[in-house]
Simulated scan of single mutants.
Amino acid sequence: MTRVIVRLSLIALWLAVGGSMTGCAQLMLGQPQASAENLQKARAAGMTPVALGSFALAAGKPADMDKAMSVRSNSVQSPVSGSFALHLKETLAAELAAAGLVDPASSTVIAGTLTDSVLDAPVGRGAGTLAARFVVTRDGTQRYDKELRVSADWDSPFVGAVAIPAAMNEFAALFRKIVGKLLDDPDFVTAVKR
């Protein structure tokens, strides 16, 4: 009986230590994809097709905020030119394109700046935040300018093999969540109405 307990203890220790050590790796978020929820919101908005302008890191923000997030000694990056600002642009593009609302020649243009991106996955509770300023112009006249912020928190277990993918999934979901918040904003809807 003692041998069984010792063996089980050693196996549990090996799983806990080995599973939490994933090494120093560069991990990529998935490519941006449209979500059913945001597709419905975009279609319901009655918006004119739009062009997407420049998306970049806000002035004065540290460059690392746009390039990589550190999660338990692993680097999480965007597959879109290594930029979270461009990842946001491509997420918005995927959502609007799925609804047939992207037209590069449109006089209504949505641009954005990434103002905050945080990802933290310690043992216990993980947390993430994403914020961006969106600007809509039509025929060169500014019709919308607002910073939006979304956040999430989740269980973050000791085992890194579970916690790191969970953190990446939650962080990726923030990009869809902020696009959803934009599509829900009555001021944005007014700015992009047909």
Results as ranks from 00 to 15, higher is better:
residue 132 A to S: 12
residue 131 A to T: 07
residue 119 L to T: 04
residue 138 R to C: 04
residue 125 R to D: 11
residue 129 T to N: 11
residue 143 R to I: 07
residue 137 T to D: 07
residue 122 P to H: 12
residue 126 G to I: 13
residue 140 G to H: 05
residue 130 L to H: 07
residue 131 A to D: 06
residue 130 L to K: 00
residue 140 G to C: 04
residue 125 R to S: 12
residue 128 G to K: 00
residue 128 G to T: 07
residue 131 A to Y: 04
residue 128 G to S: 09
residue 128 G to D: 13
residue 136 V to L: 10
residue 127 A to I: 12
residue 119 L to P: 02
residue 134 F to E: 04
residue 115 T to V: 05
residue 137 T to G: 07
residue 120 D to E: 11
residue 130 L to F: 02
residue 120 D to M: 13
residue 132 A to D: 00
residue 138 R to W: 10
residue 139 D to H: 04
residue 120 D to W: 09
residue 130 L to W: 03
residue 138 R to N: 10
residue 140 G to T: 00
residue 133 R to D: 08
residue 121 A to F: 08
residue 121 A to L: 11
residue 130 L to A: 05
residue 136 V to W: 01
residue 138 R to I: 10
residue 133 R to E: 09
residue 127 A to C: 03
residue 131 A to S: 15
residue 144 Y to W: 09
residue 124 G to C: 03
residue 132 A to K: 01
residue 121 A to C: 12
residue 135 V to C: 08
residue 129 T to S: 05
residue 127 A to R: 15
residue 129 T to C: 00
residue 125 R to L: 08
residue 130 L to E: 07
residue 144 Y to T: 12
residue 132 A to E: 10
residue 133 R to Q: 11
residue 129 T to Q: 14
residue 128 G to Q: 02
residue 142 Q to R: 15
residue 122 P to Y: 03
residue 133 R to W: 03
residue 123 V to Y: 04
residue 138 R to M: 06
residue 140 G to Y: 04
residue 127 A to F: 15
residue 115 T to R: 06
residue 137 T to C: 11
residue 142 Q to E: 15
residue 140 G to V: 07
residue 135 V to M: 11
residue 121 A to T: 09
residue 134 F to N: 00
residue 119 L to E: 02
residue 127 A to H: 15
residue 138 R to P: 03
residue 123 V to L: 06
residue 126 G to A: 14
residue 144 Y to N: 05
residue 123 V to S: 09
residue 121 A to W: 06
residue 123 V to C: 01
residue 130 L to M: 08
residue 135 V to D: 03
residue 140 G to S: 05
residue 123 V to G: 03
residue 140 G to A: 04
residue 130 L to Q: 06
residue 128 G to M: 10
residue 141 T to L: 11
residue 125 R to W: 12
residue 115 T to S: 06
residue 137 T to E: 12
residue 120 D to A: 12
residue 133 R to N: 13
residue 122 P to T: 03
residue 143 R to E: 14
residue 142 Q to V: 09
residue 142 Q to M: 14
residue 136 V to T: 09
residue 141 T to V: 15
residue 118 V to G: 01
residue 142 Q to C: 08
residue 136 V to C: 08
residue 125 R to C: 02
residue 117 S to Q: 09
residue 124 G to D: 08
residue 130 L to G: 03
residue 118 V to N: 09
residue 124 G to F: 05
residue 126 G to H: 08
residue 121 A to I: 10
residue 117 S to T: 01
residue 119 L to K: 10
residue 115 T to I: 07
residue 127 A to N: 15
residue 119 L to N: 08
residue 120 D to H: 14
residue 122 P to E: 02
residue 115 T to G: 07
residue 139 D to F: 08
residue 120 D to T: 14
residue 134 F to M: 06
residue 127 A to W: 13
residue 125 R to I: 10
residue 140 G to P: 05
residue 127 A to Y: 14
residue 130 L to T: 07
residue 115 T to Y: 02
residue 140 G to I: 08
residue 121 A to Q: 13
residue 130 L to D: 02
residue 140 G to M: 05
residue 133 R to V: 09
residue 135 V to Y: 00
residue 137 T to W: 07
residue 143 R to D: 09
residue 141 T to Y: 05
residue 122 P to W: 01
residue 125 R to M: 13
residue 125 R to V: 13
residue 143 R to S: 13
residue 142 Q to A: 14
residue 115 T to F: 04
residue 120 D to V: 15
residue 142 Q to S: 11
residue 139 D to N: 15
residue 143 R to V: 14
residue 130 L to R: 08
residue 132 A to P: 02
residue 142 Q to K: 14
residue 127 A to M: 13
